[in-house]
Nucleic acid binder design. Sequence first.
DNA 1: CTTCCAAGAAGGATCGTTCGTTTTCCTGCT
DNA 2: AGCAGGAAAACGAACGATCCTTCTTGGAAG
Lengths: 211, 211
Amino acid sequence: MIRTVPKVSDAHREQRREQILIAAWKCFARNGFHSTSMADVISEAGLSAGAVYLYFRSKEEIILAVAGQVFTGIAGRMAELFEREPPPSPAEVAGFLIEQPVLARAQTPGDLFPLLLAVWAEATRNPILADLADEILGALRQQITRLFERWESTGQDLRIPARDLAPVLVSLVQGFVTQQALVGNPSPETYRQSVVALFDAAGLGPAQPAG
Amino acid sequence: MIRTVPKVSDAHREQRREQILIAAWKCFARNGFHSTSMADVISEAGLSAGAVYLYFRSKEEIILAVAGQVFTGIAGRMAELFEREPPPSPAEVAGFLIEQPVLARAQTPGDLFPLLLAVWAEATRNPILADLADEILGALRQQITRLFERWESTGQDLRIPARDLAPVLVSLVQGFVTQQALVGNPSPETYRQSVVALFDAAGLGPAQPAG
DNA sequence: CTTCCAAGAAGGATCGTTCGTTTTCCTGCT
DNA sequence: AGCAGGAAAACGAACGATCCTTCTTGGAAG
């Protein structure tokens, strides 16, 4: 009986997909989704057109894969924060949330921040990305909300409904990414300090751990 | 002597340009810059290809014109705030800055917020737009900074350097626009109240208008 | 009649994708 | 162990579609 055996292992196959995604990431970060051609991605990956289309069905599929990595990559970085005990203060939460994209930026193949702006813009018109953005953003807000509620349950006074304050935290991150991508400042340190100082002044600190 | 007389007045000519820009605005807000074809703009304007190219040299020129309107339109709305006497508190400034894009959104031909995301994304790779963004954002920050300094000079305590707090205010607006464009919430009222409450709690209120 | 605006078909270029061919590498037999 | 067979992977030229732009033609206004 004749059995067809995979030419290369699944691991190798997954590695090839990663190679293509990294190339696409670089191109998309540099020129956005619609100004990079498949020829750009193919050239950056050092492969041929036919090879790339063995691993991805279309350009759209590559876009969705990269955008998905961007979303889940950043969201995944936040996970640790939400498990902390005792619950950190809003000032600490804000400081942490601002730090993460900066750390992620240093580890990505292409500049994360312009790519993030491209993903947000694309999510306003691509239904699949819109659903993903809704899911990720909703989960992030909900986890921040729960963190605030836990913080309140330790006897602290939030003064603002937790679910209303969460989007403000998210804004502070999104706005920082936007301004950094657009004009390259303010610096992460300065910005984080200002935000933390604001929350401290609002009685939503301290950075001092309760204990 | 033969003199060439304009067939239509300059006013009419400017009106035609506006007609095309409004059509382009709608298309760009719906599909972004690079996913709308000139055929889309031409069709939306109810004109012919040849006619459109009588008033604009290229698609790029239309993109720059629309993006310029978006930038200067929003920046222009803020102008009144910076003239106020006595200087408004940071809480009032924040509330005002958040309100303006919402008011502008109701007056634009197409949805302003997705278009704004597209403009920001495009500004990260188009040098001309990058310069414009740098100029507009820089001016906005500087005017906010000056407003804070004036507020401090009335004896109030800002607790954070004015030039460091300004980008935080900008972030709160950018983040709100981003979240509204992505998931349609939070509502302007809820968001503005939360931000104002935060600044009030930080001693940067009151939101009560002077007068 | 002259002049200019508008129209829309056509041109030239680029794009995403496919497909026939070549190369590579695993498998099974000698 | 080494060779032959074959299937999968890689290549890259080519295709059809779409894009931006131009240019010729028609018509309206002064």
